[in-house]
Design a protein around this nucleic acid. Structure first.
Lengths: 212, 212
DNA sequence: ACAAAAGTGTTGTTACTACACCCATGG
DNA sequence: CCATGGGTGTAGTAACAACACTTTTGT
């Protein structure tokens, strides 16, 4: 579960109270039940940590099978990448906490690597899909959207060019509203929204485009 | 397992002799053993069908968990995409056969969808990585490489531009040799090879590149 | 009037596609 | 010398980054 909070991309982790890996931070999740889909299982386990309706996007990352990934038992795990929009503040239990993905605490099992894999998957998708819809609030100014992209990508992005890229690709559109300026003044900002609230690939061919 | 054969991208399938889905075509694979990695398991099961040394690339596609994917039992399956270079002709058992991915026969379980997912994953990677190394023979002329790309992508590609794209990205390099022309004459073709025989992303940012 | 924030115009660059043209070989 | 296939040169284009400039607000 990733979300932009305080200007940084953060992962929701849970501090283990039991061995193995007592005290280390782990991803939320749990065992699959009979007749259950992996996605259903994830949503069920997440429900114990956050309100599932607040998860704007969920996709499978991969299945991890190294025999020594859990020192006590041989267990497979299928990891999912979940995204939460900026501004939501799900109620979370006492033993869970958000951690910046670039400064993870000691993690249980291979969960550290899984978080980084999720981060990298997200970074790629921000470039060639409309994945931003899942991180940004439902409406936003370009300055706000820029902060989301900067936090998630980890490098500077200009609001000017971000706007042109996303408008050219018809990923965002103006709502027609404007946001009044603050006490410091300044021109009121246009308010935008993402056109789609489901993942769509917007730039499928980096090269080798089919001709005509 | 995908390979370009006879100018088409084809998948290796196995005709089931037993219920369920008797007579339908299925992907090679089988049960995971205790303490075994998914990749080890795939390689072990593949060994029964083809010489595993002939698999030039193997990557995880995803894990399928729909309860009704197998009508008789609830089973999870993790699918892998394997690639074989053009020109190799692995010895395969009588009950297996290559099928063009765009004209699949009736398939068992959800295997038809898995093959198409593998095809689409490959098509994407051909555009932004050096994945071609896993489909092309170890050395080739540009006309040959073009045929590989056309077969895998499903649309026309010009040899001229293919060469410039792949050379600019330093994906292929000339070996210095030339291939003598055939009976019809024509200028001898330069022989190329891929620089790397392992997957590498060559075009990581479609847009939103970090500045500098 | 001035500072602040947002938005627009413009230029230069890069990576590509398309296509005309030139080169080397066999018959 | 000409057909055939391979390679090169070059023009046009789309998507983009960078940055100067203009617009709209608050004080």
């Amino acid at each position: 579960m990733l979300q932009v909070r305080d200007g940084a991309l953060q992962a929701l982790l849970w501090q283990r109270g039991r061995e193995p890996c007592r005290g280390a931070w782990a991803l939320p999740g749990g065992l699959l039940e009979q007749g259950e889909t992996l996605e259903e299982s994830i949503r069920r386990h997440l429900a114990a940590k956050v309100d599932v309706r607040e998860v704007s996007h969920l996709e499978q990352l991969g299945t991890y099978s190294e025999p020594d990934r859990d020192p006590t038992a041989w267990e497979l795990a299928t990891a999912y990448l979940g995204l939460v929009q900026l501004g939501l503040d799900p109620h979370i239990p006492d033993d869970t906490c958000w951690h910046p993905v670039d400064q993870l605490p000691p993690t249980a099992f291979d969960h550290g690597g899984i978080v980084l894999a999720g981060r990298d998957r997200l970074r790629g998708k921000l470039s060639y899909s409309n994945a931003g819809f899942a991180l940004a609030p439902s409406t936003f100014t370009l300055a706000e959207l820029r902060e989301v992209y900067v936090a998630a990508l980890g490098y500077e992005v200009s609001a000017t060019n971000l706007r042109r890229v996303l408008e050219r690709r018809a990923v965002i559109e103006p709502t027609g509203e404007r946001r009044p300026s603050g006490r410091a003044g300044g021109r009121p900002a246009e308010v935008f929204r993402f056109r789609e609230q489901r993942l769509a690939i917007t730039d499928p061919f980096a090269a080798l485009r089919p001709r005509r």
